[in-house]
């Protein structure tokens, strides 16, 4: 089943070149991509393929040197000022001097929500990520998986329409990661957000996504875009089905075709 809504992120002929001491580096070359509302899009590829860079450009953290990217028809900078993004990094990046509730509240304070609204939202999103009861704990008192869930709660707190996740589970072990993947899918189903998700893991990408973008480095570019035929309701053991394995195979072929491992 496919959720084809209105286009949210549209990239056209996107180029980004960094000038370094060793000459120019093509982080992105001629990237064209449309992400529709409600899509769960994974970006997969080896280091240096530009998947993180694409996310940063889409969030307006990096300016492209060529081409355009629009978010809901606006520039990323405008969209950012409209608080369109919830961004989750590989490290949870919680402030150690704030409690879990205080961390989730941070974006709400910056965006000027009133006190009562802040408290209500904190309560709601902590329930969403299954962290009720940990409001008064400090981040360093929690496990890595719980910290990452808190950082997801922080990204959800202000109702950003787009959730951008840069290898959010990359530093966690396999068992915790499986668990969080399941929770993330449930959360996506409940909130209907548009999600951009960067990962190194083929099974993770296939398990989570409606659309998988395979990228390759030097220059960073898209080599394949796969629309997943998997149903929206996905138990963990879907990973043993032929459909799943077929998609995983195609991703692996795409990575190989891009000379990813030269």
């Amino acid at each position: 089943m496919k959720d084809k809504g209105d286009p949210v992120i549209v990239a056209k002929g996107l180029n980004l070149t960094f000038e370094t001491g060793d000459g120019p580096v093509h982080a992105l070359r001629d990237v064209n991509l449309t992400i529709a509302k409600g899509d769960f899009v994974s970006f997969i590829g080896p280091s240096g393929c530009g998947k993180t860079t694409f996310l940063r450009v889409a969030a307006g953290l990096e300016a492209p040197t060529g081409g355009t990217v629009t978010v809901n028809g606006m520039t990323p900078d405008e969209a950012r000022r409209k608080r369109a993004y919830g961004y989750v990094f590989q490290a949870a990046g919680l402030y150690p001097w704030r409690t879990i509730a205080g961390n989730v509240k941070l974006p709400l304070e910056i965006m000027g929500y009133d006190r009562a609204e802040q408290d209500a939202r904190v309560k709601k999103v902590l329930e969403l990520v299954d962290l009720q009861g940990f409001e008064k704990k400090f981040p360093w008192q929690l496990s890595g998986g719980m910290q990452q869930r808190a950082s997801i709660a922080r990204a959800l707190a202000f109702d950003a329409e787009i959730l951008l996740m840069d290898e959010p589970f990359g530093a966690l072990d396999e068992i915790v990661r499986d668990h969080l993947n399941e929770q993330l899918l449930a959360l996506w189903a409940r909130t209907g957000k548009t999600i951009g998700f960067v990962t190194h893991s083929i099974p993770e990408a296939v398990y989570l996504s409606t659309k998988i973008v395979v990228m390759s480095p030097r220059p960073g570019r898209i080599t394949d875009v796969i629309d997943s035929p998997l149903p929206k309701d996905r138990p963990l053991d879907i990973r043993d089905t032929p459909d799943f394995l077929a998609v995983a195979h195609r991703v692996r072929e795409g990575l190989r075709a891009g000379h990813a491992y030269d």
Partner: peptide, 26 residues
């Protein structure tokens, strides 16, 4: 303050003063 945490503040559209008071001074 780490680059990542500053980026996070940018995704919230935080002002210079907000970043200073809420992130960099602590």
């Amino acid at each position: 303050a780490e680059a990542m945490q500053r980026d996070l503040m940018r995704t919230y559209g935080a002002s210079y003063l907000q970043t200073l008071v809420k992130l960099r001074l602590p």
